[in-house]
Design a protein around this nucleic acid. Structure first.
Length: 591
RNA sequence: GAUCCCGUAGCUCAGCUGGAUAGAGCAUCAGCCUUCUAAGCUGAGGGCCAUUGGUUCGAAUCCAAUCGGGGUCACCA
């Protein structure tokens, strides 16, 4: 149980006994005491004054006395300042906490709860390489999956690959027209970049053709439709849907190139999936459900044969769910896939990591599920995240302002290498160890940078300033971990039980912070928010760093103090490693 | 036009289920390596929490309006 819960419980018991009426934890707040006041945790009394008809001081005294009387092992003293009842928690409580948990690498994690949840993330298109926005998505998805596991869920990671549609045909057409049979192998290019090159080529060519048509005084809108390369692309899409062998063959080949490239990137960044869905397999799903919905009267058919749902009573619009030619649209497929996931895996929750530009779409999906009365409607969660922008504005592939995923990872590793060589602390590492260290630090910096911000907020990535290994960064935390590991290599930890010892304020502060870890894991799960972990872990690292510079562990005042500090160091290292693991960030033993 | 999100230090972000004097990092300035890893530590400066009004004992936090920025409202995915 968390300390705040213990305090709440104790206060509820005392209040109910003192005033002969029921109280709950919601009647008052328990906060950590501000550093400028004496005490560890504070009960705010204002909200209780009316119900108890007491003045703050009187209430504080009655409550404080009663709580101490009932729990002498927990509370050592209290003071009242204005409406704030400040308790000092007994050293014995903190000491017991430390003794029981310092060497438990699972500290903070919660037991299995028997629930199964699927996290869908990444969702790439197979016409171009991954960029920085995809990295935010991948890191979020991975991290949320880890956070759910730590909270006792069984987690399945899934990926829906957008492998069909007009955008795929664009790179196919361009390759047919201009490729001269070249391949990733023949050019030495990574497959996804190779295909992406032709996607860009398409857009260049298309722009050129439209311009020429406009120059021959054809209106812009008309020119966009008439451009020969666009017409060819649309024909190809029809051929694809008709199953034309030649087109299918090209499609398989080019997608294969992209997958080879993606595999490399996923391996590099540490993303993986338990189940991969391909839109080419799922795009027809959902049509049966639409029929069921029609029978139920949830959907309606318009004169031209298209099928719609009227969401105006819910403040939204009418939404198309089936085209007049009977083919499915984006939402149709999602309705089907949601059903399939539920049936296939018996999941209790389905989390979709998708950008916030699809908030409306996901709202509609959930609403449709609700109206259809499916059992999983309430268990669909959209983890909506904001765009990653550059200081100059949005990233646009057409304008070449996209930060490529492979490039930025490489750049971070290069920076890690340069910095490591400059510091010269690992001169004895062999080349493989060095490469691994650069990867750990560079990727750690990137992951931490993208995960430390609240997912739902847009964020700015400045290529010049963002590659920073100082301050609120992954490498800072890794550094503190390595520093603790260095101490532990040089100092023996003996499993001795300590007599009551006085804590220094800095020692107690660290233990109090460490105690919050289980609550932070819970909160990160409730909010589906890895940044809660990132911020917490940084604060732990900072507290340790500050402690480290003020107090020697190896040369502590006494042998017992040394053991106490070693235990605190071990627990700090465990929490740092465990927390960073939930962000998908490895910790080096040395750096 | 409808609807949703955002606006906190020069910059990037915390804090938002209302509580004590609004916090970090970067950048700037001043100190600190003969002692456990200085990717570090200590300190200084830097704020009308977009604006106005409301609710409350108490508002950065809740409500409303306004102003600024962005998303969405496709028989695209």
């Amino acid at each position: 149980m968390f300390i705040t819960e213990l305090i709440q419980e104790a206060a509820v018991t005392s209040l109910s006994a003192l005033f002969q009426q029921p109280f709950t934890a919601k009647d008052f707040q328990v906060n950590q005491t501000k550093p400028e006041f004496e005490g560890d945790y504070t009960i705010v009394l204002f909200s209780l004054l009316k119900k108890t008809s007491r003045a703050p001081e009187a209430l504080g005294k009655e409550l404080g006395d009663d709580m101490i009387r009932r729990h002498p092992e927990l509370f050592s003293s209290y003071n009242i300042i204005k409406g704030f009842l400040n308790f000092s928690i007994s050293d014995q409580y903190w000491m017991t906490l430390l003794q029981h948990n310092y060497n438990d690498v699972c500290f903070g994690k919660h037991p299995m709860n028997g629930k199964k949840v699927m996290v869908e993330y990444s969702s790439p298109n197979t016409n171009k390489p991954l960029h920085l926005g995809h990295l935010r998505n991948n890191f979020l998805g991975w991290s949320v999956a880890e956070i759910l596991k730590a909270n006792g869920y069984e987690v399945l990671k899934s990926c829906i690959v957008n492998d069909r549609g007009i955008h795929i045909c664009k790179s196919m057409i361009a390759w047919q027209l201009f490729g001269n049979g070249e391949t990733p192998q023949s050019t030495g290019m990574k497959g996804d970049h190779f295909v992406g090159k032709y996607y860009v080529r398409f857009n260049d060519e298309y722009k050129q053709q439209v311009k020429e048509l406009v120059d021959h005084s054809i209106p812009q809108a008309e020119a966009e439709k008439q451009a020969p390369i666009m017409i060819a692309t649309q024909e190809m899409l029809q051929d694809w849907e008709a199953g034309n062998p030649e087109v299918m063959d090209l499609w398989r080949t080019m997608n294969g190139w992209v997958y080879e490239g993606f595999d490399i990137t996923y391996k590099t960044i540490g993303s993986d999936f338990d189940k991969t869905y391909y839109e080419s397999n799922t795009y027809l799903l959902g049509k049966d459900i639409v029929q069921t919905g029609l029978d139920k009267g949830v959907f309606f058919r318009k004169e031209d044969g298209s099928v719609w749902i009227d969401l105006t009573p819910d403040g939204l619009d009418e939404k198309l769910v089936l085209r007049k030619d009977g083919t499915s649209v984006y939402i149709t497929q999602d309705i089907g896939l949601a059903q399939q996931k539920y049936e296939e895996y018996k999941i209790d929750q389905s989390i979709y990591v998708i950008g916030d530009e699809q908030n409306y779409h996901m709202k509609v999906l959930k609403l449709i599920a609700k109206k259809m009365g499916v059992p999983y409607a309430d268990d669909i969660h959209h983890l909506s995240y904001g765009m990653v922008e550059l200081p100059t504005g949005k990233m646009k592939s057409r304008e070449g302002t996209v930060v490529d995923a492979d490039d930025i990872v490489q750049e971070m590793e290069n920076e890690a290498k340069a910095k490591t060589e400059e510091l010269g602390k690992v001169g004895d590492f062999d080349p493989a160890e060095l490469a691994s260290l650069y990867h750990t630090i560079g990727l750690g910096a990137l992951k931490f940078f993208l995960l430390r911000v609240d997912p739902k907020k847009r964020m700015v990535f400045n290529p010049e300033e963002s590659i920073d290994f100082h301050g609120f960064t992954g490498p800072f935390i890794q550094f503190n971990y390595a520093r603790i590991k260095s101490i532990l290599r040089k100092n023996e930890l003996e499993n001795v039980i300590h007599l009551p010892l006085d804590f220094l304020p800095a020692e107690k502060e660290l233990i109090i912070s460490l105690e919050k870890y289980p609550a932070v894991i819970r909160q990160a799960c409730d909010e589906l928010n890895p940044s809660a972990i990132a911020i917490y872990i940084f604060n732990i690292a900072k507290a340790f760093s500050s402690f480290y510079s003020g107090h020697s562990i190896a040369n502590a005042e006494s042998a017992e103090k040394k053991q106490l500090r070693l235990q605190i160091a071990v627990m700090t290292a465990n929490v740092l490693k465990s927390g960073m693991q939930m962000l998908g960030i490895d910790m080096p033993e040395r750096m």
